[in-house]
């Protein structure tokens, strides 16, 4: 400690970490360009930095709120709740992690599914809540997604899913792995029924979610600069002992390698998806 710091009374002392943050609630800072942003304005801009267009994380409900027409709306599978079947415990109990995540996000699990309309086109839309245990896919996510596809099939409407997930939820063991099979099988039914499925991959979409429902879109759309891949970059770097190429596993990299159809700015997604869906569903009647 320097002599100056020693002299300063403790209430004037600041430490590096707190000094950089801005008071919660009114102002926030863009992680990419450091611009100080008015919270309300950022929310209006659907969590995209007005200065540099950096796409920040957005909650599932805020996402759907902005994406869907104001009415009608019907939530799907909201009554389903997670259970800790195997009393999983790592450094903390799974039950505690669930309770904490529920408190933090106000959601019961990491997916919200709502039937509604986008620019008057009836659809079902799902979104991952990344702040809920990293958007990890366990039984509740899998079941809500399956219910969403079934709703989609029964009403003959398209499905849209916004992914933001680290992958399968390890705390649910093998059952979380099986959600990959469950959700992919559900999409198989949707495909057989010739209903469009648009997958929007947002930052980050990796692991078991990337290797199941997120990559199975009839059209795969990525948000700018989103991290998308099967294995996370840190593990790959440790395995191959090579420096990863610039922009590796970013949306632009996936577009270049043919894994997504397009990159779309969040502020344009509603228009773009409505436009794509309107073309895909136009011939429905005459094809049957």
């Amino acid at each position: 400690m320097s002599w100056l710091k020693k002299l300063l009374p403790s209430r004037i002392k600041t430490n590096g970490a707190t000094r950089r943050t801005v008071p919660e609630g009114i102002w926030t800072k863009c992680a990419a360009c450091n611009a100080v942003l008015y919270r309300a304005e950022l929310a209006r801009n659907i969590e995209v930095c007005p200065k540099c267009s950096h796409h920040m994380h957005i909650g599932a409900r805020a996402r759907l709120e902005q994406f869907l027409d104001e009415s009608p709306r019907e939530e799907i599978g909201a009554e389903i709740r997670p259970v800790d079947k195997y009393r999983f415990r790592d450094s903390r109990k799974y039950r505690e992690r669930l309770a904490q995540a529920q408190k933090k996000t106000g959601e019961t699990d990491a997916m919200v599914a709502i039937a509604g309309r986008v620019k008057a086109i009836p659809i079902v839309a799902c979104a991952f809540e990344f702040d809920f245990m990293g958007g990890s896919m366990g039984s509740v996510v899998g079941e809500r997604f399956a219910l969403a596809t079934e709703y989609s099939v029964s009403r003959r409407v398209p499905l849209v899913c916004f992914s933001a997930s680290g992958g399968a939820r390890m705390q649910e063991g093998i059952v979380s792995l099986m959600q990959m099979a469950k959700t992919s099988a559900a999409l198989g039914v949707l495909r057989r029924e010739r209903l469009p499925y648009i997958s929007v991959l947002t930052d980050p979409t990796t692991g078991g979610v990337s290797a199941s429902l997120a990559m199975l879109g009839d059209i795969n759309i990525a948000e700018p600069n989103a991290l998308i891949g099967f294995t996370g970059p840190r593990v790959i770097e440790q395995t191959v002992r090579q420096t990863l190429p610039e922009g590796f596993q970013r949306a632009e990299f996936l577009l270049e390698h043919g894994n997504v159809d397009m990159i779309v700015d969040r502020r344009d997604l509603r228009d773009k998806i409505a436009s794509l869906l309107s073309m895909l569903i136009a011939q429905k009647a005459s094809m049957h």
Binding site: A211, L213, G229, F230, T231, P245, H257
Partner: peptide, 18 residues
């Protein structure tokens, strides 16, 4: 977990099989 595997769409390959 390799660079080439990611470039060639490891996720998609697995998902498609499922």
């Amino acid at each position: 977990p390799g660079i080439g595997a990611e470039e060639r769409g490891q996720s998609e390959a697995i998902a498609r099989n499922l």
